[in-house]
Deep mutational scan, measured.
Amino acid sequence: SQHQEELPPPPLPPGWEEKVDNLGRTYYVNHNNRTTQWHRPSLMDVSSE
């Protein structure tokens, strides 16, 4: 059986914070524009500005 090492997730872009809601779900807060989202932001998402 193949065992895959879990890679650590990439660092969050500046201004982002990973949080967990009261149901144990992980979400991400963008403090730059005060938004939240479910999927993890990547540095590539942000660098397109």
Rank of each mutant, 00 (worst) to 15 (best):
N22T: 14
R34K: 15
D45C: 04
H3F: 09
K19P: 00
P9R: 13
N22H: 10
E49T: 04
P11A: 11
P8A: 11
P13D: 06
R40M: 05
M44L: 12
H31Y: 14
E6K: 12
P10H: 11
Q2V: 04
D45Y: 02
H31D: 12
V29H: 06
W38Q: 15
R40W: 04
H3P: 05
R40E: 04
S1Q: 00
V46S: 14
T36V: 04
P14G: 10
T36K: 08
L12F: 00
V20T: 09
H3V: 11
T26S: 14
V20F: 11
T35P: 01
N22D: 10
E49M: 03
H3C: 05
S48K: 05
Q2T: 08
E49K: 00
P14Q: 10
L23S: 14
N33C: 09
N33K: 08
D21F: 00
N33A: 13
P10L: 09
S1Y: 09
G15K: 09
P41L: 00
P10K: 11
V46F: 11
N33W: 14
P41K: 02
Q4N: 13
E18F: 03
N22Q: 10
H31W: 10
W38K: 11
R40Y: 03
T36W: 01
H31G: 08
V20R: 13
V46W: 08
M44P: 15
N22R: 12
G24N: 14
S48A: 09
T36H: 06
S47K: 07
P9E: 04
Q2R: 01
D45A: 09
T36M: 05
Q2I: 11
S47A: 12
S1V: 02
S47G: 10
M44Y: 07
H3Y: 09
N30P: 03
V29S: 04
P41A: 01
T36Y: 03
Y28T: 01
N30D: 07
P9T: 07
Y27F: 05
E18G: 05
L43M: 13
V20Q: 13
L7C: 15
G15A: 12
K19T: 04
V29G: 03
L23E: 14
L7F: 14
R40P: 08
Y27H: 06
P14Y: 11
N32L: 07
M44E: 11
H39N: 12
G24D: 08
S42H: 05
P11W: 04
V29Q: 09
R40C: 02
G24A: 06
G15L: 06
E18P: 05
V29M: 10
D45S: 11
S42T: 10
L23Y: 08
R25Y: 06
G24V: 00
P41I: 00
P41E: 01
K19Y: 05
W38T: 11
P11H: 09
D45W: 03
P11C: 08
W38F: 11
H31R: 13
S47Q: 14
R25Q: 15
Y27P: 00
P9H: 09
P11M: 13
S48T: 15
D21M: 01
N22S: 14
P8K: 13
S42K: 13
Q2C: 00
L43H: 10
V20D: 08
V20C: 10
P41V: 00
V46Q: 08
E17D: 04
P9Q: 13
W16R: 02
P10R: 13
N22K: 14
E6D: 07
D45E: 14
H39L: 10
T35E: 09
L12V: 15
P14D: 06
S48I: 15
E6T: 10
P8R: 08
H3S: 07
Q37W: 03
S42V: 12
E18H: 06
P8H: 10
G15Q: 10
Y28R: 01
L43W: 04
P13Q: 06
P14A: 13
R25H: 11
N32A: 12
S48Q: 15
R25S: 13
Q37E: 02
S47P: 12
Q4K: 15
E17H: 01
E18C: 10
K19W: 00
W38N: 03
V46Y: 03
P10W: 04
Y28Q: 01
